[in-house]
């Protein structure tokens, strides 16, 4: 394509108007179009192009007639020498053996993933540090409910801390 030079008096290429509307011009072509739009004639042609583009893009797509695409496909197949009914069976060729992971390998992987998930996600058993002194006092408190209160509570007053 020839670059438009408004100063050279060369004829204006109307295809640039469409390209300009689609923002597909190079910087130089865009500058040329915008300079040419100073001409009322060019501006009128730009309006016509824009109107035509809008009309085309808003028109509904026509539905092809019934069997159109079947005929197209048959024509393409005929051109390639292939038909559905007479196609000779292709010789069976053994594919190169592609070793796939055996099931036990997959199971092992799943088990390993489960173990990792269990270790990471499932909390382990809590470590318990019995507060023996507190539990001894708790037993005394409970015993005092159904027993003699003085003798059952007295150990609480003397068992400061846990002294075996």
């Amino acid at each position: 394509m020839t670059a438009f030079d408004p100063t050279a008096g060369a004829p204006f290429d109307d295809s640039l108007l469409s390209a300009w509307l689609d923002d597909e011009c190079t910087p130089a072509e865009a500058a040329a179009v915008e300079a040419a739009l100073a001409s009322p004639d060019v501006a009128a042609r730009l309006a016509e192009v824009a109107s035509a583009r809008t009309a085309v893009r808003s028109a509904p797509w026509p539905e092809p007639p019934a069997g159109f695409w079947d005929r197209v496909h048959a024509a393409v197949d005929a051109a390639d020498g292939v038909t559905d009914s007479v196609a000779a069976p292709a010789p069976v060729v053994a594919l190169p053996v592609r070793r796939r992971p055996t099931r036990w390998v997959a199971a092992l992987g799943a088990a390993a993933a489960a173990v990792v998930a269990a270790v990471v996600l499932v909390p382990g058993p809590a470590t318990v540090r019995p507060a023996v002194g507190t539990l001894v006092d708790a037993h005394a408190l409970r015993s005092s409910i159904q027993g003699d209160a003085a003798s059952t509570l007295a150990p609480i007053a003397v068992s400061a801390g846990f002294r075996p």
Binding site: P125, A126, T127, V128, R129, P130, L135, A138, H139, R142, S143, Q146, G147
Partner: peptide, 13 residues
């Protein structure tokens, strides 16, 4: 005689 049993889930430290 009274006996208190204290139970807590976990392992003994």
């Amino acid at each position: 005689f009274g006996v208190s049993v204290f139970e807590r889930e976990g392992t003994l430290d």
